[in-house]
Design a protein around this nucleic acid. Sequence first.
DNA 1: ATGCCGTATATGGTATACCATATACGGCAT
DNA 2: ATGCCGTATATGGTATACCATATACGGCAT
Lengths: 227, 227
Amino acid sequence: MSLITLFSQAAPGALKLDRSSLKNQSTELLRTYIVSGRIPPGTKLAERELADLLGISRMPARDALMDLEREGLVVSKPNGRYVIEVSKEDVQNLLQVRLELEKLAVTLAAQHTCPAYRAALETNLQQMRKAIQQNDRNAYIKSDLEAHELIWQQAHNPYLLKMLHSIMGPIFMFIASHTEFQTNWHETLQMHEALASAISVGDAARAVKSIEEQLENSRQLSLRIFV
Amino acid sequence: MSLITLFSQAAPGALKLDRSSLKNQSTELLRTYIVSGRIPPGTKLAERELADLLGISRMPARDALMDLEREGLVVSKPNGRYVIEVSKEDVQNLLQVRLELEKLAVTLAAQHTCPAYRAALETNLQQMRKAIQQNDRNAYIKSDLEAHELIWQQAHNPYLLKMLHSIMGPIFMFIASHTEFQTNWHETLQMHEALASAISVGDAARAVKSIEEQLENSRQLSLRIFV
DNA sequence: ATGCCGTATATGGTATACCATATACGGCAT
DNA sequence: ATGCCGTATATGGTATACCATATACGGCAT
């Protein structure tokens, strides 16, 4: 009996191997844990300790830490590396830069609209509505992020995409560490709908206005947080 | 006789040690060589070869290459790492992002103007005038970069500063690889004077207009280059 | 009790050996 | 002559040992 036959009933990917290097697996794992707050700000990240925890040698652990350091999620001090602590002021600075990058992104996305992209944005909005209906916070956050990701892709500027990715980590960390940072889902949905519609009809000016509203909203929320 | 006495006549720093790690020294050296074009685009950068060249082991060489990869000056392919090749299209994308970041920077800088900053900008302009008078291309480029660096610092946003730094590497590579990319020095000086003056009087709108002109100028020049 | 000093300890940095994998290349079968 | 196949080679990935340095900490002199 062939292997194919043996596993024909198994879930796809049941035998999937980790083709990615230990370094990249470590980076992704750590990033997820840090951004979500499961590894809290200020935590010390020693190479040896991390390597033991992951059951690997110091080198891939070290590589991962250096990646996260370049990404801005980890800082080096003379006596070790630590998870960054994002202050209120940091978030203001981050959002300030993000706003300009997002404005450029929606402008470019509006210029590149096409049926396939419009469909993708619409599908995303449906997911967001479904998440709200089911009161599923995780699904909501996921679709929120995906909406932005879609737009960033549509902008067709790889450098812009890279910068937007890199700036989101610390921002999400801050949000994660303040669960009281509660957005009004319906309001956000409306803003997303307005943004998607503006982009889909190629109205850059309206898209920019919409993203400005969204981020101003985030800024106000972050300001209200007591740190 | 004391060491101090022995070296009292020596130039300051005559005994200066390299306190920086081999990794950082390697990164800086490679960056300089790549950005200036002395290591041309497309050059293969093998860890072992680089380590031998620098007389160090593979690890710091590897670390340096990974830093440069993060920085966007080096790319990984399945069979090795290579110096990036910046296309005309890449420069357009880079300048597009840079423009938005610079606009934010000059706006913020204008808000933070103070006597010390005004003096720094004026000193820089004098250096630039001197370089032009002496027809010193290197001094001119240096003062040009320093002008932007001063403004970026005045913006007081560390994330913005980091992004502007990271985006300049590939742009300078492109310029370096096209020596025909000749700017009109007097014209550039005038634009710098206008920009510095706008920032120093806190006129953000005029500063933005000025930086837009400058970068549009760069864009036109880069478009004219035959690749 | 206080303050200094020296050693212990923890940390990142570096060197080196070996492993996994992709590519290159040469010879052999046809 | 052509195309395939297998081995050689080059490359990055990983593990491990040791080094340099900053910090922590405990005991000793005062």
